[in-house]
């Protein structure tokens, strides 16, 4: 494969990743959020494999396999199990003003390109555009966490941030060293396990998965006197 072609492919995948970040933001059915999240994981693995092929960094193949297993299969499957057993898989989450959120998302994306502009021109890598796209994905995932009220979709937002960071690492730097990559994957896995534990505790204690219900238990401690 020529470098030109692989660059075109990577750029295409970057665009798709950005598109999925928008899709995640716009979904209101729990299950479709999860589907898009899994798709993002698989897409990341493909991107990693492609970058590994075109750059000759063989360590990245291991990252790609790890990503596919962890973010494409394991995490979505765990989350699916959790929402099944909590009986929330059919739930529809009302979104605050979808049109407005999309407008903000567009502005955030433009802003990311603007911020990264000065450093993108200095990069010698062929994938320099991906830094801007990764920044946009990070910020969009954060926007998703802000606009969601349910604990589970917040966590998917959190994991989508991790995905975007991984994309930044492979897209802009051809991947972090393997040791660090493994450490990060381990932390994400442990975090996901703890999140799973928390879901049941939250359901058990608050009888709801709404974050507002949780915050209410802290409000009386807050400084209103």
């Amino acid at each position: 494969m020529s470098t030109f072609l692989s660059q075109q492919l990577i750029d295409g995948l970057a665009a798709l990743t950005l598109l999925i970040s928008f899709a995640l933001l716009a979904q209101h059915r729990m299950l479709s959020v999860l589907h898009w999240f899994a798709a993002q994981g698989v897409l990341l693995a493909v991107t990693a494999a492609l970058v590994a092929y075109s750059s000759g960094e063989h360590e990245l193949y291991i990252s790609a396999i790890m990503t596919f297993l962890l973010k494409g299969l394991l995490l979505p499957w765990m989350l699916w199990r959790v929402i099944r057993s909590l009986h929330v898989h059919r739930e529809v989450e009302p979104l605050m003003n979808n049109g407005m959120t999309m407008m903000i998302a567009v502005v955030v994306t433009l802003f990311s390109f603007h911020v990264i502009q000065p450093i993108a021109v200095t990069s010698e890598l062929m994938t320099r555009n991906s830094m801007a796209i990764a920044t946009a994905c990070v910020l969009l995932s954060m926007l998703m966490m802000i606009t969601r009220k349910k604990a589970i979709t917040q966590v998917i937002g959190f994991l989508a941030v991790e995905n975007s960071l991984f994309f930044a690492a492979i897209g802009a730097t051809n991947g972090m060293p393997l040791v660090v990559e493994i450490g990060i994957a381990f932390d994400v896995l442990v975090a996901a396990l703890i999140f799973g534990l928390f879901f049941f505790q939250i359901r058990h204690t608050f009888d709801s998965m709404e974050v507002d219900a949780m915050n209410a238990s802290l409000i009386h401690k807050d400084d209103e006197e």
Partner: peptide, 23 residues
């Protein structure tokens, strides 16, 4: 309830923060 809510807040906010640090 308060301790679970506090731990959740801690987890999400610090998780977010630490994600930015990774970036």
């Amino acid at each position: 309830p308060a301790s679970i809510a506090a731990a959740w807040k801690y987890f999400i906010l610090c998780g977010m923060g630490i994600a930015l640090a990774l970036f």
